[in-house]
Amino acid sequence: MASSTNRFLDLLDLLARHDVDFIVIGGVAAVLAGSPLTTFDLDILFDPTPDNIQRLLRVLQEINARYKDPAGRHIEPDTARLQSMRMNLLKTDLGSLDVLRETCGFSYSDLVQKTNEHRLGELRIRALGLEALIEIKEKLGRPKDRFALTYLKRILELEDGEEP
């Protein structure tokens, strides 16, 4: 049964336990970087190697993932879709999960060097760093990204010890 609320830590833990190579991007990455802005989805960018796609697929099957289909059809992710689709917007038993092969033209291999490791209890995950988050938000340019940018840039200033 679909969860009505996201279980962020449970999703991350499951991905890590299955050795999926992924990085957290989007709003959750911003929160981990210190943003107080709320998000309801977990967005991940995955390494599209064949072995990693199979590991990811096992996780998605375990949490009963299916696409958020506007027509209400039950469509489950599979190898072909994960290989070919840039964005896979899914609902799962642990909440909404956006599984991306690329974002703004950037792939996992482009961005993995721009991540920071975060310790969440025993779990260690990689999330996009502040500078890369700012770069992507500027490219996206939507009103909600502009709002988030205000916070991300201010975090950078405060971390650098700058005061207005």
Binding site: T5, N6, R7, F8, L9, V28, V31, L32, G34, P36, T38, T39, F40, H118, R119, L120, G121
Partner: peptide
Amino acid sequence: AERLQVLQDFV
């Protein structure tokens, strides 16, 4: 971990 928990609590 605490930042993620803040988000989880809010959601």
